[in-house]
Structure formats: C-alpha cells, structure tokens
Nucleic acid binder design. Structure first.
Lengths: 226, 226
DNA sequence: GCCACCATGTTTGGATCCAATTATCCATTT
DNA sequence: AAATGGATAATTGGATCCAAACATGGTGGC
C-alpha cells in the first residue's frame, strides 16, 4: 500500500515482493506451500533480508501467512474465505462505482466500451479474458481517483485471482459473460450513483456464486492441488 | 493481517510494530513525522532489522509511508483521505452489519446494550468514550466471524483514529451521541440484513460529516499540529 | 507396527557491519 | 540577504554471521 513507486531501479525488496506476488497471484504456488526465503534469495541473487521484508509485506496483504519460527506459507483459502473476499470486493467496488457514476465522462465510458470489446474478443481464451476483465475493473474503479479504495480493491482481487484462474482453467470459460460488463457501463452512464453501486455489487455477487460453488465441489471431492 | 498471534513472548518485530503503531494510532506522532529506525531500536533495545520489518508492515497497512532511501514517515492524511477511509469503513461495516443481523443472538444484543451503556456513562470523557466506541464497533463487526472483514475494518478505524482523538480533544465531546448506537442495536434486532447495513452505513457517514468539516476548517485556518 | 527420543540438518530471527544515499551544516558567491 | 556548492554526518538498504528453533530421519523400546 505504499503510494510511492516508479522506482526505476527496483530495490531488492521490491524485486522479491514482485517475484513472490506474481507467483502466488498467477496460481503457480498453491495455498499452504511453504516459501523458503533462502531459495528466493538465491534465484534473485540477493540476500535473505529483503526477501524477509517482502514476506512481511505479503503477509500484511494477506497473500502469505508468516508463522513465528516456522516460516511463511502461501495463505490457503477455503471456499468461505473466497466468499468473504468476494463480498468485501462487492462492497468496495460498489462504493467505487457509486463515485464513478458521478465522475465519469464520455471518455471514460468510451474507454470502458473498448475494454468490454476486448473481453468479448477474448471469449475463447479464458486466461486472456481474465486479464482484460481485471483491466476493465481496475479502470472503472480508478475513475473516482481514490487511491486507497482502488488499492484495497486490487489487493482483494489479487487474493482470489488464483481461484479464478483455476476456475477458468477447469471450465475453459470465464465465470461471467461479457454482456454483463456492458450493463455496468450502462449503469455508469445513468450518472445515478446508487444504481451503479447496486449494479456492480450484484455483478460481483453473481460471479461469486459460480466460483464458490466450484470451490465447494472441488473441496468435497478432495481433488489434490490448489 | 497475520491471523497467527497470541505469541506469549513477543518477537522483536512485533514489539517494534506495536510500539510504533500505538504511538501513531494514539495520536502521539503527527502525520508527516519521520520515523528513524535506529531511535526506535535504541528505545526498545533491539537491532534495526526488526524495526525495519515493522515499518514494512505498517506501510502495507497505510499507517506509515516508506520512501526509498529517505526513510518512513507517518502517513499524513488530508481531509479527503479521511473521508475516503470513512466511506470505505461505512461500506465494510455495513457489510459486517448485514451479516451480524442474521447471525446475532440475544446474548450479542445484550452485550451490545451493555457496551452502549458504557459509552453513555463516559459521555463526559471523550477519550474514554472513544475507547468504548471502538469496543462497541469491534464487537458488532466480530459477530459474523469473518476475520478478514473485521481486520480490514479495524485497520481503517486505526488509520483515522488520531483524527477522532483530535476532534474529541478540541471539542471535548465525541462526534456522535450514544443514542445512535442504540439505533444500531435495534436495527440488528430486526434480523433484517439490509436494514442493519443501511443503519450502520448511515451512522458512519453521519459521523464522518462532523469530523471532515472539522478537519477542513482546521486545514483552512492553517493551525499548526497534527 | 507404533511411539518416543535423540541426533543432525535446515531454517529462522535478528545482530552487526559495510557501502550507498540523503540530510545537514558551513563557507563562498551573487 | 539569498542562493549555491562542498564537506561531513546521519540514515538507509542489505549482506553476512550467529544462536535459537524447528523439521526430518534413524533407533530403540513396547
């Protein structure tokens, strides 16, 4: 949550943070996996201390869980944890949408239409669709210009990202159709904050249903893996 | 956001984290103040590394802002920052209240009544009132048993705490009357999640109005201090 | 076969040190 | 008086080392 970035030459800590975060968010390290600082340090050619600091940051963000004297693990999420995060996201993105409806210009709406089009065009590639989906929501939530709100929304979205990736990989389709995003744009276009908030919250709640059901089914069948 | 606590023997990092956090949240260090790790290390009789790690955690939580090569400062908040945090809090506590309304028992409601009574009895002592107020909201938001939601709400509340302290100190009264909290209890008692959510959001939005106005007035008059 | 104990190896927390960067102070110039 | 430049002091990032804690594997007893 540091707002000071753009450091052309990345510090060792940021390198480590980025490396570990990208692995987790990209689903490459399953929940529960232990992260050994000396291994990361060796891969990156740095010492352990900046890796440790990166793990402190990632712990504060919820992506890893540091256990005293026993090291850090990738935070494992149960279906109800994912549900909780989706609900927090719905509340916060709803808030962002409320303000975005008041503030957005034709330019913003046009940009969102372009992004929705990109999502449509990626409908056969679930991973690409998810990337465009993230960009769409990022852009929409950045319209109010509230850095803390945006940062928190992004943090939550990152937390559940591996599970969306998994969903998309298993079903080879996104958990939500592109048309739904056009409905969000239409809601913003009304300039009615309450309506936009409701539309976005509902959108996220709806997406959550499929993902949570998937995770519950998966946990029930005790399939090994993430 | 580490859920693993209860460490009987606190690590050096936790000591440092607690020490710095308590100073900031208690309003003892104004926004913008530089935090020098070696000074904290000396006070606590530890080395600089755990203090640095504590600062990474506090940065991730938004209480401090680490600047590359220039050290950490207590995050300064402008009135609009405080407003943003209040709105995020309203969204998240509203969500917590929605679930609390469904889950709460007579015991929960009774406990909340006791806490509201405590607040009433502390009406002449704004600092004590604020403490009881925090306890009330903490308890209410813990009812749903959603650890991440509660942690985030507490984090946001901690961020704005120094400003509430300042408000209370200047006016020697809390920014909200005790009766309002009874209305929240009544809303929970209906078992209607939507109604409880609205009541809590509104409650926080209302509190925010006085505090933001105070901060804006203070910034306008350029009074020195926090 | 199971469990408890012990030895060994690995990892962790953090203390200390060093090089790089920034802040501060003082002298000189405009 | 204000601005600039250079020297010095303070602080920062992180590398390295050490002691403590934990994980793992082997052995002996039941």
């Amino acid at each position: 949550m540091s707002f000071i970035d753009g450091d052309a030459q990345q510090s060792a800590q940021q390198q480590a943070y980025r490396y570990i975060r990208d692995q987790i968010v990209g689903g490459a390290i399953p929940g529960g996996t232990k992260i050994v600082p000396s291994e990361i340090a060796e891969v990156l050619g740095i010492s352990r201390m900046p890796v440790r600091e990166a793990l402190v940051q990632l712990d504060a963000e919820g992506l890893v869980t540091n256990r005293p004297n026993r090291g850090a693990i990738v935070t494992p999420l149960k279906p109800e944890d994912v549900e909780e995060l989706f609900q927090m996201r719905a509340a916060l993105e709803g808030l962002a949408a409320r303000h975005a409806a008041v503030k957005c210009t034709e330019m913003h709406l046009h940009e969102l239409e372009i992004m929705a089009g990109r999502m449509d065009r990626a409908a056969d590639d679930a991973q690409l669709w998810l990337r465009h989906h993230d960009e769409f929501h990022d852009y929409m939530c950045s319209i109010p210009g509230r850095a803390r709100l945006l940062a928190e929304i992004r943090r939550i979205r990152a937390s559940v990202h591996p599970y969306l990736l998994l969903y998309n990989r298993v079903y080879d389709r996104p958990e939500m159709e592109g048309a739904e995003h056009r409905a969000l744009i239409d809601a913003l276009r009304t300039k009615n904050g309450t309506l936009a908030e409701r539309a976005v919250s509902h959108h996220i709640d709806t997406a959550a249903v499929s993902v949570i059901a998937f995770l519950r089914q998966r946990n029930g069948t005790k399939v090994a893996g993430l």
